[in-house]
Simulated assay, not measured.
Amino acid sequence: MNKLTLPIEVMLFELRRSRTLGRIAIWFLLVAFPVAIVTAVHLITQYERGDEYVADEFIEPLGMAMYFLIPEVSCLLGLLLWATPAISTEIEGQTWVYLTLRSSGRRMVLVGKYMTSVVWTLSASLAAVALCTLVVGPTIGSELWWVLTKLVVLSCFVHAALYLLIGTLFYRRTMVAAVAYTVVVEYVVAFIPALVNKFTINYRLRGLLADWMQWEDARSQAENVFGNEPAATHLQLLGVMVVLFLGLALYRVEHTEYPTQQEA
């Protein structure tokens, strides 16, 4: 089989295997969760303001709510499910030993699982973005849709590479390590007003959100949250992160002898 088509075959196989009741229910939950909260916030605000409600005045709080719920929560939950256990599921299923016998089998399977996690999570997140923008209305929804769509794509590609690397490093306590990283780094360190938060993914995504939405007041008042770097800087660093995380994951999986279930 052509080495270029093997990752695609792995992705298609994993997607076919995901068509179970549980996985489908999780997919709909990832879509419904942000839509339900955005709808509730929108309706409550509209009810409280009454005739004084003007959608344009609430573009920042609605945009921040949609950003936090989708690129920072739904995307990460989906990738935790798919990207993190890429190696551990093969070891537990006693199929890892067969993959190691194939030429470039380890790398190709890892790339295929990376593509699977991105496609599966991206489909749910993009559906959530589309439905949320319909809820808030076309006045502000169209601009938010385009910006959040780009942020969702970036979030999926970068976080999937990171969780894949975590999965190759901590194949025994994969989910624990990934959840610990997410809570400590992306939800705590990313908000610390120091140099360390600039090395987090969500800091870069929030910077792009403020830059593309032209929220200059928000950026000036909370530089530790949104940053003051240009969009090009954020994009370049996110691209470097994808290449670095994937490269380290591929190196790790190629040069590590993971114990099989029988050996463990």
Rank of each mutant, 00 (worst) to 15 (best):
N2A: 10
L12V: 13
L15N: 02
R16F: 00
R17T: 02
R23C: 04
F28I: 02
F28W: 09
A32K: 09
F33C: 00
F33M: 14
P34Q: 13
V35H: 11
A36V: 14
L43T: 09
L43G: 01
I44V: 09
I44S: 04
Q46F: 05
R49A: 13
E52T: 03
A55K: 06
E57Q: 08
F58H: 09
E60M: 04
L62H: 10
L62I: 10
S74A: 13
L76N: 14
L80C: 01
A83W: 06
P85L: 10
E90V: 09
E92K: 10
T100R: 02
R102C: 11
S104N: 15
V111K: 04
G112E: 05
Y114F: 12
Y114H: 08
W120F: 11
L122M: 12
S123F: 12
L126R: 06
V135F: 14
G137L: 11
S142R: 01
E143F: 10
E143T: 10
E143H: 08
W145Q: 12
L151D: 05
Y163D: 03
Y163N: 07
T168A: 05
V176D: 05
V189Q: 12
A190S: 14
F191Y: 13
N197M: 08
N197C: 15
F199L: 15
M213N: 03
Q214C: 05
E223H: 11
N224L: 03
V225S: 03
E229M: 14
P230N: 12
A231T: 12
V242I: 12
V243E: 00
L248T: 10
V253N: 07
E257R: 12
T260D: 13
